[in-house]
Amino acid sequence: MRILTSSVGRKILMSITGQLLIIFVLIHLIGNSTIFFGPNGINAYAKHLHDLPPLVWAFRLFMLAAVSVHICYGVMLTLENKAANPGAYAVKRNLKKSFASENMIWTGVLLAGFIIYHLLQFTVHGTPDIVVGLDAANRVDVFKMVVTSFGHGLISVTYMAAMVMLFLHLSHGIPSFLQTMGWNNEKTIPVYATGGKVISAILMVAYISIPAVILAGLLKL
């Protein structure tokens, strides 16, 4: 299987899995934003989502596979690239590469850590801040759980910092996946560079708005 071992093939796999993760980030944001409609918004959304367990588990396994491929090849390619460049210049001036492009592995590692924490917290309910209960309509009270947890300043700040990592990762990731798929030409290169930053910034602000609004007391129990 050429695609699994070659330089360009593995890059294409990074790109495709990256696109799947970006689609997930978009859908997850739309789902999360139901919190702004109060308990009847996000609790109903969560109930609909979990009413079909086989579908939920199929989706979870699919995302786990995508994120695993993305992480494995990301680490493998980074190690190979470090080895290919002894990096021994006494003086090196970079003309183009950005903080985001240079630190993809580190923003990626931090995001992976954040995903584990996020799943432990809101999916497994394994962190001490979690309040699990049922609402008036006998649904799992996701609204109460999220608002209580984000009421802790440190938790909210952790989420906000993670979204800054997401911004950095995607501001290089979005133009990069377009280039890797070959959906690029001389005219679109600068458009994608700017577009990638703008879309990443919108996603970051939108995600941060949830803990920010709760922390500001605008969304409360």
């Binding site: 330089s7 360009v8 093939g9 593995r10 890059k11 294409i12 390619l77 190979e80 690239n81 080895a83 290919a84 460049n85 970079n94 003309l95 183009k96 590469k97 950005s98 492009s101 240079e102 993809m104 290089h172 133009p175 990069s176 280039q179 890797t180 798929m181 070959g182 959906w183 690029n184 030409n185 001389e186 290169i189």
Partner: peptide, 30 residues
Amino acid sequence: GNCSNHYECQAACPKGVSVKFIAKLNREYQ
């Protein structure tokens, strides 16, 4: 090494060869 789209190459190229050719290579590869 593998390309990770930093585009330092195009900036340093004395002939201004564009990274659009890398996109073309990626299309050809697919």
